[in-house]
Nucleic acid binder design. Structure first.
Lengths: 155, 155
DNA sequence: TTATTATTGAAAACGATTTCTATTATCGTT
DNA sequence: AACGATAATAGAAATCGTTTTCAATAATAA
């Protein structure tokens, strides 16, 4: 039997959140959400914009930013910065946190999870009487391909 | 520009690095370095600028940015982004890597080190055939004060 | 000293994001 | 289905932190 580890985000989830907060379920919000969950992770506002433009030819980039901010406040998305000057957005499918391996040569971003590390983080926090709300662990370096062949995938 | 790396931060170090690289030991670079190493860690370019202005009343903000970039290339400073839109600079006193606890209420930044976590990171990387060059671990949440009193220090 | 050229300050440019405002569209009420 | 209050929009302009440009200046080598 096949099991989906990550439950897909229901289309109804956005509407639920929106009506619960007495906001308006606009065409743009629906379209942005649909595109957002259909795209790869770690996309930029620009990338989402270009994709949404195919369906909503009159949409403004500011609407993309506003709406992504809304998704973040709703807990449907998370914003991240990997230091290249672009904020990247991640749909939140479940409560599983994930960390990143970032290849500085080809740009590949691989996700990983490690409960052992998370536990040690909690230990550190406890020692400082600090309460962790969220965290960010990013390992920068060379992925297998770039390390082996030296050349990289992006030239 | 060729740059020779690696050495501990001493008062003479800036001059050593500068002459070694055939650059010019200007009044501004001396003053910025002096202020920089005398300030708290994780300072912004603006904060350094305001401090340097007290001694160098005609200095430009662009010189601060340029010079901080130089320090980073020399290995005398490191640039970090904690997601508040400001690049923060850290003098590099030794080769000890440190991670951060960042209070989202009062902004306090506490440093920590944990060799156990570092070893687990290496383990994860090995599993992905990834070679780590550098890493970033940031725990966001509430510091002891903000957690206890609720109000925070800046609020 | 003088020539060479790296460095500077001020202003303009920059790219991501936010704000502004007139217009449009949603939704509770008829 | 239409009405009306007002939230949300598009598009432009503004803003923010940072970088670049460029003519003038100043540090070094000759």
């Amino acid at each position: 039997m096949r099991i989906n580890m990550r439950a897909p985000v229901q289309p109804t989830l956005l509407k639920t959140q929106i009506t619960r907060n007495h906001l308006r379920f606009t065409r743009q919000r629906q379209e942005i959400f649909k595109v957002f969950v259909g795209m790869a992770r770690h996309v930029t506002a620009e990338e989402i914009y270009r994709e949404v433009l195919k369906k909503e030819s009159r949409i403004g980039l500011s609407t993309i930013y506003r709406t992504l901010g809304l998704f973040c406040r709703f807990g449907l998305a998370e914003a991240r910065q990997f230091g290249d000057g672009h904020t990247r957005y991640d749909p939140v499918y479940d409560k599983h946190h994930h960390d990143h391996l970032i290849c500085t040569q080809c740009g590949e971003i691989t996700e990983f999870e490690n409960q052992h590390i998370e536990r040690l983080q909690e230990q550190v926090a406890r020692r400082h009487r600090f309460v962790i709300r969220r965290h960010k662990l990013e390992l920068y370096g060379l992925c297998a391909d770039c390390h082996d062949h030296g050349s990289g995938k992006r030239g």
